[in-house]
Design a protein around this nucleic acid. Sequence first.
DNA 1: AAGTGGTCTAGACCACTCG
DNA 2: GAGTGGTCTAGACCACTTT
Lengths: 258, 258
Amino acid sequence: MPEPLSGDLPAYQEIADRLRARIVGGALGAGARLPSEQELRTLYGSSRETVRKALAILKAEGLVVSQHGRGVFVQRRGRVRRSAADRYVRSAWHAGISAGQADLGDRGPELRADMVRVETLEADAATAGRVDLPAGSRVVRRERRYLQGDRPLQLAVSFLPADIAGGTRAAEPDSGPGGSWARLEEAGWRFTVVREEVESRIPTFDEATLLHMSPGSPLLVVHRIATGERLGETRVLDYSAISLPAELHVLVYESAVR
Amino acid sequence: MPEPLSGDLPAYQEIADRLRARIVGGALGAGARLPSEQELRTLYGSSRETVRKALAILKAEGLVVSQHGRGVFVQRRGRVRRSAADRYVRSAWHAGISAGQADLGDRGPELRADMVRVETLEADAATAGRVDLPAGSRVVRRERRYLQGDRPLQLAVSFLPADIAGGTRAAEPDSGPGGSWARLEEAGWRFTVVREEVESRIPTFDEATLLHMSPGSPLLVVHRIATGERLGETRVLDYSAISLPAELHVLVYESAVR
DNA sequence: AAGTGGTCTAGACCACTCG
DNA sequence: GAGTGGTCTAGACCACTTT
């Protein structure tokens, strides 16, 4: 049963619109496989490149993702609200919930980390600047991926000054309950202010692979600089670069009017 | 002088990499025209579709934008830092700088608005919910575009409760020095808290056109809800949806650790 | 072996801009 | 009219997954 196109819009645009309607309308739910390119060709009477261009739009929107040799699949939809006000609550991470998860609320329990990798190295100039240290300073680098079920939710790379975190459990793969921030507070540091810098761009090949994203689908990147103090000394305690599939997140911030 | 490709990567990826290197290296500055598709074909010995696919990558990255019949042009680069802490300072907008510009600092003077459009209408359910009113409530809708030189920097659509803003200069195209927020404060309202919800997606056709973006290049969208009070009454005074080309902005927020 | 998506080619016609 | 990018076709070969 071929579906003729109206011709008011470019064919690839019309095909994308119709497929999108089937996805957001629920006819094609999360995990469902779209008709193959060959099937879409006969369905819409178009060439393969036209069909592929329609699919490219849906991929850029984050609605679908293709798997070589298997097909094109509908992605999970719906944005998770991540509120800074809920994230930086000392009592939460002292109760065993790390700062990276405290804002996830009820969804927290399903979240798990994998690919945890920790090392101590000399920071390049850009990274050292973020932690307010001279280039070449030693830092603890913590890298991990968070998944919800089998869907990757975020990548995070953190840098902590080695003179502060080195030798503590914050420099081990399992930083313990409440995460590395809880360990630093146990060592007498007190987190005071967190600055977050939000940008958006399309992912690198590696990021797209790790997050199960299409290459053209946008990413939210948060550069988080956490400052703390101990015995009158103020230091940057943590710089983290956090990468999130844009389709899955909304970041919430509150500011007082001064 | 053809430039042979190595073959380690897909041809379109290699071509994109080489063109990107010429742009970020400064050989092709902002406003410069790239070689035409025909010239790139002979330069790299590839077919037209391959060359176009390479250009599509650079478009999605926001590095270039194409103009039908004219060519492909390098976009202005560099992100503007927009800090919430600088934006919501009462003294700034009472000094004549509106909340939408107070964080732009020295760059403010060059900024100008165009396509200003103001109307009063009944809010749909979603918009009414944002301003904490029942569906169908009357609201003042302010729409405008901000440009820096000839480059559009942002789109903004604001909704203010008509029972508050109606009849004041906040409901006129030129809301006066300091913008509509200054007018509401003159009417006795005092802004207290601003919540911002940040998301990212690819633009609609209209958004891409108004912002001079490529269709696949990501957009940052800020939903801003400003709350205020007067005589003990607390109200949402302004809901704005602000659209920014991602390539041009980084949003900065600070949070206290509690 | 069959089916899927990924890459690439050669060619066509169209819409837009500029001299 | 010449040059540019936008759309579309038909066909080919490859890499990957599944049966």
